[in-house]
Every structure is written in C-alpha cells, then in structure tokens.
C-alpha cells in the first residue's frame, strides 16, 4: 500500500519554491504533506499530493526535475506515544528509516528501502496505513474517526 511522493529539485534562490507551489496551485493539486531539505546550493522538495501523476506532469511541463518515490503512509491516533509505536517497531525490526515527515493531520510518511516488510510489520500494530485513495480526500480538519 505504498503511496507516491514527488521529489523536486529546487535551487536555493528566491522564488524557486514558490514556482513549484504556483504550478501545483494552477493544476488544482492539493498538497497533503511537505518536507524541504536543503544545502547551501540546492534543495529537494518532497511532496505528498492528492493526484501525484497530474502533479508530476504539471511540474515536468515546466521543465523541473521530478522523481516519484514510494513511501509508506501511516495514520496515527492523536495520542501520546503514537509515533513511538512506529519508530520502536521499525527500530526493533532493524528497518532503517531514511527520512520521515508528517502530513497535515496526524499522518506520518516514512521512506524505507523495503516497503512491504515495513508495511507488514506496522499493520500488526494498532495503526492504520493510509492508501493513495485516502490521500485523494482532504486529511485536515478531522482525521477519520473509526
């Protein structure tokens, strides 16, 4: 149940990030989660969106460098210790998390080498894995109450 993340190469110059968000706005794409890592010269903007293919196409049309990566997306209950369940589980199973960030609402995405193994592991915990379809609907303003 991997979800797609889009990584975009952005130079560290004023307005470069705004160019990315403006293109997505124009294409009517909703951003569900976002992380920006940067060095002095360039950054990689990582985005989780409602319609990844449409977003990738819009960005590539604008001549931007875009790469799609599979991630695992987990919905967490908004209670103390929820994130700990995730990281303790993957830590004990010796799964290396390359990076992780949270989406709007109490979702967190993880980049791991073996998505299926991590998925199987986390599914056995009191956590819900979110699908690409879940991301097609708004996440904020009330996580699913089930």
């Amino acid at each position: 149940m991997a979800i797609k993340q889009l990584s975009v190469f952005v130079e560290n110059r004023a307005g470069r990030l705004a160019r990315v968000t403006a293109i997505l706005e124009e294409a009517g794409i909703s951003i569900r989660g976002f992380s920006l890592a940067d060095t002095v010269d360039f950054g990689i903007a990582r985005l989780v969106v409602d319609r990844p293919s449409a977003a990738a196409e819009a960005l590539m049309q604008a001549n931007l460098l875009v790469r799609a990566t599979d991630l695992l997306c987990i919905e967490l209950p908004d209670t103390p210790g929820a994130l700990d369940v995730v990281f303790t589980a993957v830590g004990e199973a010796d799964i290396n998390v390359e990076y992780a960030y949270s989406l709007v609402s109490t979702y967190v995405v993880l980049k791991v080498a073996d998505i299926e193994a991590a998925e199987e592991l986390l599914a056995s915990k009191p956590l819900r894995l979110a699908s690409q379809d879940d991301l097609a609907r708004p996440l904020a303003g009330g996580s699913r109450q089930d």
Binding site: A37, T39, F42, I44, R46, R67, E98
Partner: peptide, 15 residues
Amino acid sequence: EVKPEAFSDSFTEMD
C-alpha cells in the same frame, strides 16, 4: 545543469 537521469531523491547521492 543537472540532467533528469542524475536527479535523485537522495541528498547523499546528489552530493
């Protein structure tokens, strides 16, 4: 300029 095939999601690789 970076070519598409050289762009990676990983900072380590880009660096």
